[in-house]
Amino acid sequence: MDRKDFLKSIGMSAAAFALINCIGCKKTESTNTTDTTGPTGVNFTLDLSLAANAALLTNGGSLVSNGVIVARTNAGTYIAVQRSCTHESYTLTYQSANSRFFCPNHGATFGENGAVTNGPASRSLTVYNTQLTGTTLKVFS
């Protein structure tokens, strides 16, 4: 193999490697942005007497279950919304001190009722019903 063929071979290998990486990046981006809606058919219960759910025994506590953030507001009521931001599907956190859900990626915020309070998100969160019976909290669509 002469020098010209060697360099041509290296160039083709580098181009193929770059193409494969670019295709991989594109798939990652599209996967990340497709889950901006909340789960459908939500219907589960949380046993509040279990240690795994202890965060919900305190006002301001929250946890994630089945793609849903379940929180206990400072007023003591239970609320549930989709886990993912409607802008780019990043995981939200519940900030009880500000009575809101916050996306740490781009700074979007949502009220406890799921409404957008600060962009770049433009669509409200899916909100789910909650019902407390004894120590069982039911979360449903």
Rank of each mutant, 00 (worst) to 15 (best):
M1K: 03
D2F: 05
D2N: 13
D5K: 09
L7A: 01
K8M: 07
K8S: 02
K8I: 06
S9C: 09
I10A: 13
A14M: 05
A15T: 12
A16V: 13
F17R: 10
F17E: 12
L19F: 07
I20N: 05
I20G: 11
N21Y: 12
C22M: 15
C25I: 13
K27W: 12
T28W: 14
T28H: 12
E29T: 13
S30T: 14
T31A: 14
N32P: 09
T34W: 08
D35Y: 10
D35I: 11
T37C: 02
T37G: 07
T37M: 08
G38C: 02
P39D: 00
G41E: 06
G41D: 10
V42N: 09
N43S: 06
N43F: 09
F44A: 07
F44P: 01
T45H: 02
D47W: 05
D47E: 06
L48D: 06
L48W: 03
S49C: 05
L50P: 14
L50H: 11
A55K: 12
L56N: 11
L56I: 03
T58Q: 09
L63C: 07
L63P: 14
V64P: 02
S65M: 14
S65A: 15
G67F: 09
G67Y: 04
V70R: 04
A71G: 08
R72S: 04
T73A: 07
T73W: 02
N74C: 03
A75T: 07
A75G: 13
T77S: 03
I79H: 03
Q82H: 08
R83L: 13
S84T: 08
S84W: 13
C85M: 04
T86P: 06
T86F: 11
H87P: 00
H87Q: 01
E88A: 12
Y90H: 09
Y90D: 15
Y90S: 14
T91C: 04
T93E: 15
Y94T: 10
Y94H: 02
Q95F: 04
S96P: 01
S96Y: 10
A97K: 03
A97Q: 06
N98K: 01
S99L: 04
R100C: 06
R100E: 06
F101S: 09
N105H: 14
N105I: 13
G107Q: 00
G107V: 02
A108K: 06
A108M: 09
T109L: 01
F110H: 01
G111M: 02
N113G: 11
G114L: 01
A115M: 10
A115H: 03
V116K: 00
V116T: 07
T117S: 10
N118G: 10
N118F: 13
N118W: 12
G119M: 04
G119C: 02
P120D: 04
A121C: 08
A121D: 12
T126K: 08
Y128M: 04
N129Y: 12
N129H: 06
Q131I: 11
T133E: 05
G134P: 07
G134M: 05
T135Y: 09
T136Q: 10
T136G: 01
L137T: 06
F140S: 15
S141W: 05
